[in-house]
């Protein structure tokens, strides 16, 4: 009758039921929840698209620029996109409140556009994406990122060479 001990313990300690859904729910800081996308940091390298197993991330070239789309309803919350993103442009938040009525099914998505711009140095049409900081030391300052955003890949390379890159 070991079990009676447990009953007594349960009666003495009271129910262990949490107050949710009538009260707030505890969420751990590392909870892998809804994906968030930070357009200004995206370099358009498409690493996230390549590692996304369920095909929840999609890049399309459109006349206006590079379109980023992400559908929450097929995302498996694995976090590989965040793991392999070189600029932390894609990030997994701790938001898990995602239950929705079925008519919202297709609006559960992220749609962003990295627009085309004309290179501020040579005037060529180019994507206004963030520069890829991998292996660059010291890292780009926010001002430099804004500057590079307006450059085409060739002019970026030139600017980087002028900046000096010890690594």
């Amino acid at each position: 009758m070991n079990f009676l001990k447990i009953f007594v313990r349960n009666l003495v300690n009271g129910p262990s039921t949490v107050s949710f859904p009538f009260g707030p729910a505890w969420t751990p800081a590392r909870m892998r929840g809804r994906i968030e996308f930070k357009l200004p940091s995206c370099t358009g390298c498409r690493a996230c698209e390549q590692v996304c197993a369920p095909g929840a991330i999609r890049f399309d070239k459109t006349p206006e620029g590079l379109r980023f789309m992400m559908w929450h309803n097929t995302c498996v919350f694995c976090g590989l996109c965040e793991f392999y993103c070189p600029t932390d442009a894609i990030h997994q938040s701790d938001d898990w409140h995602m239950a929705h009525a079925v008519d919202q099914k297709f609006s559960m998505a992220i749609r962003e556009l990295i627009p085309y711009t004309n290179c501020s140095a040579c005037g060529m049409k180019t994507l206004a994406s963030a520069p890829n900081p991998v292996g660059i030391n010291p890292p780009y300052t926010p001002e430099e990122i804004e500057q590079h955003r307006q450059l085409c890949p060739a002019c970026r390379k030139k600017a980087l060479a002028e900046r000096g890159n010890p690594s």
Binding site: I6, S16, P28, A29, R30, M31, R32, V76, F77, C78, G79, L80, F83, Q92
Partner: peptide
């Protein structure tokens, strides 16, 4: 009772890995 005990391990998983089942520890 067993599930309550197990739930503490689930808490460890959720706090350490961010998910209660598919912990995504390996790469």
């Amino acid at each position: 009772h067993v599930m309550e005990v197990r739930e503490r391990m689930q808490d460890v998983k959720e706090c350490t890995f961010g998910n209660r089942m598919d912990i995504g520890a390996n790469t």
